[in-house]
């Protein structure tokens, strides 16, 4: 599904990603961990197409296509979803309206008819249940005045609405209390199928109690320095990153 080869990227001339190699197949869950500033969020942003970053080397293939050639919106329409660490507020635009546009853009891209208002409302109600989101929230402006937990639930709600092939969740667990973490993580698990894939970026093993990864990668200074199975996350939780970093040097 996704194949990242020797990916280098810079921001303001500073190299953040320094040769990432990563392959994600359908049905898989990957976790990306690593110390602060190692380039995790940059990797997510670059894959989504954020123009703040410049790709200087390497290639990314998504569903057999050159991902780097596509605009941000076309990547999204083709099924790449980014769950934001800091979801953005859009005053005056209701969540329901925002998602209606997004869903219908995607349908248009696939050559499908736009949903009728009734179909859309029904879909919204069903998907809201997945993350126990009060549907009243959807008549509020996008992320405006949402609590930290509501914002993250709202990200997973959008993921449910858009049903992506590949979801990259950037620190979806940050700023969540224990109950919200359970709801959000369970929601992600419910959405996981054999036809899609999930990449979770996290600092904490506890998220992976719910979202069980097939692979755990450690990113350090813009490179993946180690890959293991879910037990690696447990080991990292206990011992930190020093042993891996020392191994590097």
């Amino acid at each position: 599904m996704l194949k990242v080869t020797n990916l280098h990227a810079t921001v303001d001339g500073k190299e953040i990603l320094r040769g990432i190699n990563l392959e994600v197949k359908s049905g898989e869950v990957h976790a990306i961990m690593g110390p602060n500033g190692s380039g995790k969020s940059t990797l997510a942003s670059v894959l989504a197409g954020n123009e703040k970053f410049e790709v200087t080397e390497g290639s990314v293939e998504f569903e057999g296509e050159d991902l780097l050639d596509l605009s941000i919106e076309d990547r999204a329409r083709k099924g790449l979803f980014l769950g934001f660490q800091y979801p953005v507020e859009i005053p005056g635009v209701t969540m329901a309206n925002f998602m209606k546009l997004a869903v219908n853009e995607q349908r248009k891209f696939r050559g499908e008819e736009p949903l009728t208002a009734a179909e859309y409302l029904k879909m919204m109600r069903e998907k809201a249940k997945i993350v126990e989101l009060d549907t009243k929230m959807t008549s509020r402006a996008v992320n405006e005045g949402f609590s930290g937990g509501e914002k993250k639930k709202n990200e997973i709600f959008q993921m449910a609405m858009l049903d992506p092939k590949l979801a990259i969740l950037d620190e979806t667990d940050s700023g969540l209390d224990i109950d919200a973490l359970r709801i959000v993580a369970t929601g992600v698990t419910k959405l996981h199928t054999e036809q899609n894939a999930t990449v979770v970026i996290t600092h904490y093993q506890r998220l992976l109690d719910y979202i069980v990864p097939d692979y755990v990668h450690v990113l350090y200074k813009g490179r993946i320095i180690h890959t293991g199975d879910k037990s690696l996350a447990l080991k990292l939780e206990k011992e930190g990153y020093d042993w891996l970093i020392n191994e590097q040097q």
Partner: peptide, 16 residues
Amino acid sequence: DDQLFYCNQRGLSTED
């Protein structure tokens, strides 16, 4: 730019 990126990432064109 963050607002535009957020919207783009949900599949909306910049003009929309």
